[in-house]
Design a protein around this nucleic acid. Structure first.
Lengths: 122, 122
DNA sequence: GAATAGTTCTACACGATGTAGAAGACGGAA
DNA sequence: TTCCGTCTTCTACATCGTGTAGAACTATTC
């Protein structure tokens, strides 16, 4: 999977945090007066559209071309994306269990508990 | 942490797979007639040295300048590196537990068992 | 049909990476 | 002690991904 740049990531965050699809303009505004990370950027709408096109090419967003301001939505949830990234890292290692061991060793106690619950639920 | 390119990664793999430190020449040969991934590349030694220097700058390798052909060794184990990468991904998510849940949901059964053991050992 | 709002094309700068020659430094052989 | 071969450092360039946006084109609406 392709990695995301800073700006691409900010755009994805906006989409992920938004329940419904967004227009390029809305995303532009989100980046400008946004509350989340990567805010404060005052970009041209074309810039945002370029980024969105690239994200679309990478299958990170779906674009609805039937509405006039096109609508963009994330094609995957953030959690799914992140989990996939983690699996990708893990998959690139020959010594998977060793990696898992290290990984678990650094998880916070509360998350350890959460992990236990998750494992039990399987 | 900086991400590694293709070639950089191949070099790291050689270092990770080697018990002891390697010279630039050895790495060059490893890349050429190597068994592992990224093999078949017939590069100039200077190329390898450039890559090694960059890896050194990124603190991925340590260089021993006291021996004549300098010796290079990975500064971290692969498992540690991979685990850190995974934590990095996880840390970039606001909904950490959701990500963990997804992640665990896709781990193979044998690894689930391993995870249980690891958690119990804490 | 003209103004307006939105989209696509094209373009450029910049940094990371892959790649290596030329030039410099160093250690051993003569 | 000088020279030679080996190894390292410097410098350089191409390419690719990303950030950034103007110019030109298209569709909508009055």
């Amino acid at each position: 999977m392709a990695t995301l740049g800073e700006l691409e990531r900010s755009v994805m965050d906006l989409l992920w945090d938004s329940a419904d699809a967004l227009t390029a303009g809305a995303i532009r505004d989100g980046l400008a007066h946004g509350n989340a990370a990567g805010a404060g950027k005052d970009l041209a709408v074309t810039t945002v559209l370029t980024v969105l096109s690239r994200l679309e090419a990478k299958d990170f967003v779906n674009r609805d071309r039937d509405t006039r301001p096109h609508l963009f939505r994330a094609s995957t949830s953030r959690a799914a994306h992140m989990a996939e990234l983690m699996h990708e890292v893990l998959g690139a290692a020959p010594d998977r269990e060793a990696v898992l061991a290290r990984f678990v060793g650094q998880v916070s106690p509360s998350e350890v508990a959460a992990l236990r619950r998750m494992l039990d639920g399987k």
